[in-house]
Amino acid sequence: MKDMSAYWRENLRLVIGCIIVWFVVSYGFGILLVKPMNAIPLGGYKLGFWFAQQGSIYIFVALIFFYMVRMNKLDRKYNVHEE
């Protein structure tokens, strides 16, 4: 049982980390900080605009796969993976 609470704590830490990134790229760079970010060019994009209409979506995809890989490892570490 103690193992399981350690597993859950590690899971929560991972989730919180991912949610912070999720928040920063969309709500941070794409909304709250969009004006200062827009001063920075990225090719023909303004950076804040790019995060709002392109970048945040790419990072969302990457985050889910990152979470999946880390969770699959965590499942094996605590021996709770599926057969």
């Binding site: 989730v15 991912c18 949610i19 969309s26 709002a52 945040s56 969302f60 889910i64 969770m71």
Partner: peptide
């Protein structure tokens, strides 16, 4: 223009929540 980013982020960002908080 930019203001429609609400739909772009809003209708994709939910999948991050789904993957980590609900679906599994």
């Amino acid at each position: 223009g930019y203001d429609a980013s609400v739909f772009l982020m809003g209708w994709t960002g939910g999948y991050v929540l789904l993957a980590m908080l609900l679906a599994p």
